Amino acid sequence: MSQTPGAPGTPGAPNPQDSGSRKHVGLADIAGAAGVSKATASRALRNPESVSSGSMAKIKQALAILGVDSRAPHATSREMVALVRPSVTAGDVDPYARLFDILTSKIFAQGIAAVHVEAASNRVDALAESLLGPVGSDPHIQGAIVLGGGPAGELAAKLAARSLPQIRVSNARHEDGISRIVLDATDGITTAVQHLVHLGHRRIGLAVLRDSAAAARIAVFRKAMANVLHIPATRDQAPVIEAAGGTMAGVSAADELLRQQCTAVIACAPSLSFGILEAAARTRLDMPRDLSLLTVGDVPDADVIAPPLSQVSYDWEAVAVSALTEVRGMMADPAEAVRIDYSVTPDLVLRASAVPPQRR
């Protein structure tokens, strides 16, 4: 990690009844479950000594029911940190799932209440109001860690407008003045190209999500192909497919790259990787004998997929520690907080999905 200027089942982690989704727990939820006013709930979370023992007992019980209570002495800590990620559509894959779980565990281990937030486009204003409270009042939370872009980025901007201590973890830089850890996939793409060429591949395709980071990733891919293979790396020589999110988009991207006779594909999102695996199965290709696949980014259970996926991935433990350390420092002294900008490069993890090319 270089600096430039400028789970369920885990002790203390939420345990929602539906393990496939996470529910945002706001002050109104806590107050409603405890049968007290929002003002009483807010005072209890900030200063437990300011409310009666009866009200405090009700609020502790409500926190436990809602999955916020860590059943530890610090369960009602005055500090509350929002852990924000974009909502994921049905059938898609959350690229931040592992980091989210690690952060949850570490936040609760430090005696802080973690408020899980899934940001959707139609809920950004309501979520901001729930987390911040009325203008002119103290926010209900003391800090935030925001994962990803889209609606999560929109919510981060609203939190920044109220000067809330926060740090963003995303795959793109923005001049918005918010401290951030950038997951730099560009070096990972270069590493992926170098490894596949070393294996003997010459016809390599790129599948990338159609988002704000696409142009930079495509440029790096074509530059790497030109430098490593000593070719002009035109569109014909370095095929690229920009796809929407979701597994079916990955299937479509894979179909097109296979039509262009690619022997290896670099996928820049988990959903695209799963789509490529599906497309290979539909066309009865033997992976990796007929098609090698290397993913840039974190794929859940990559080591147990058939075939186990080679990937360029991040040290999520290190990212989580840095994000939590930085935001806690900002919370301790907001007036002296200095904007930070970290860039994290991924490492190559070799498994079985990338091998030398075979005749197809």
Results as ranks from 00 to 15, higher is better:
residue 2 S to Q: 12
residue 7 A to G: 12
residue 10 T to A: 12
residue 17 Q to A: 14
residue 23 K to T: 13
residue 27 L to K: 09
residue 28 A to T: 10
residue 29 D to H: 15
residue 33 A to I: 01
residue 36 V to A: 00
residue 37 S to Q: 05
residue 45 L to F: 03
residue 51 V to I: 03
residue 51 V to A: 00
residue 54 G to R: 02
residue 56 M to H: 10
residue 61 Q to E: 14
residue 67 G to A: 07
residue 72 A to P: 01
residue 94 D to G: 02
residue 99 L to C: 07
residue 108 F to V: 06
residue 126 A to N: 07
residue 127 L to S: 10
residue 128 A to Q: 14
residue 131 L to D: 02
residue 131 L to Q: 06
residue 134 P to M: 03
residue 135 V to F: 03
residue 146 V to D: 04
residue 146 V to M: 09
residue 146 V to I: 12
residue 152 A to F: 07
residue 152 A to Y: 10
residue 157 A to I: 05
residue 165 P to V: 11
residue 183 L to M: 10
residue 187 D to N: 04
residue 190 T to A: 07
residue 206 L to H: 11
residue 212 S to H: 07
residue 213 A to C: 06
residue 214 A to V: 06
residue 216 A to R: 15
residue 225 M to N: 02
residue 236 D to E: 01
residue 238 A to P: 06
residue 240 V to F: 03
residue 241 I to S: 14
residue 244 A to G: 14
residue 247 T to G: 05
residue 253 A to K: 13
residue 261 Q to N: 15
residue 264 A to T: 15
residue 267 A to L: 10
residue 269 A to M: 11
residue 276 I to E: 08
residue 277 L to V: 14
residue 279 A to H: 14
residue 284 R to N: 15
residue 294 L to Q: 15
residue 297 G to A: 08
residue 298 D to L: 03
residue 302 A to H: 11
residue 308 P to M: 01
residue 311 Q to I: 07
residue 313 S to L: 09
residue 317 E to T: 12
residue 319 V to N: 07
residue 320 A to R: 04
residue 321 V to N: 12
residue 325 T to R: 06
residue 327 V to F: 05
residue 341 D to A: 07
residue 341 D to K: 00
residue 341 D to F: 02
residue 344 V to W: 05
residue 348 L to Q: 09
residue 350 L to C: 11
residue 352 A to T: 14
residue 356 P to C: 00
residue 356 P to M: 01
residue 359 R to E: 11
residue 360 R to S: 09
